[in-house]
Design a binder for these strands. Structure first.
Lengths: 112, 112
DNA sequence: CGGCATATATAGCGTTGCTACCTATAGCAA
DNA sequence: TTGCTATAGGTAGCAACGCTATATATGCCG
């Protein structure tokens, strides 16, 4: 998969990865790998800054903890994050329909 | 639709827009608008540089003409462009499946 | 003449994912 | 002990690319 294909769609996937409970960055990477059947194997240099961005944006909230001698930063969805996830899902459906329609050269379904 | 959502997917759509015959930049914009039911209204500052990129990459071939006193640069798919379009379509399907699976929290279909 | 559609072009910006590198602990093998 | 791997986090700098803003030019209509 091309590197830049993800651009603009990663945030939604991160939010989705946190929907069913808090996860720390490393666990998010593993989750995405499993949920995508191994097709998504994102480098840490992608995930950690992205989580920081989401935290800055107030969509997730991070907290430090220590488990087995290792420090972790766990993230939970905020209320805004949950709302954002709903929006991102809708945007994705529209986007996927548009690109699909153009690529398959099928005219957009007429609402009439 | 978010601005950066298109990143990495525009090229494929441009190739698709040229699949059924040559078009010039302005016509490509109109085609995409119609094929997407008005959801895609791309600025000229996006289309023209993108077509230049595709030409540089050897995927399309441009030629000047004059119609009704207006100069146009029409683009045709090269053989490589046609092959690239096939590849882009396949990549899109994979990408859409991956993102869809993660966003909808459905595990990737097991090939077994 | 003014304004709009048609038609092309480029400079510069902002976002964002990636590469490469760094730190640190736990556990296991040589 | 040494070293490798997995786990866990981090940053600096780069590259790609779509967008904004701006510029040029023609045809046509009021």
């Amino acid at each position: 998969m091309k590197a830049e294909a993800l651009k603009g769609h990663l945030d939604g996937m991160l939010l989705a990865a946190l929907e069913d409970g808090p996860r720390h960055g490393y666990a998010v990477i593993e989750y995405l790998r499993e949920a995508s059947g191994g097709r998504l194997d994102l480098p840490t240099g992608t995930i950690y800054p992205a989580l920081h961005r989401l935290e800055q944006a107030g969509l997730v909230e991070g907290s430090w903890s220590v488990t087995g001698g290792r420090r972790r930063r766990s993230y939970v969805l905020t209320r805004a994050g949950r709302q954002a996830l709903v929006g991102r899902r809708q945007e994705w459906r529209t986007f996927a329909s548009v690109v699909g329609a153009v690529l398959e050269a099928k005219p957009w379904p007429n609402p009439a």
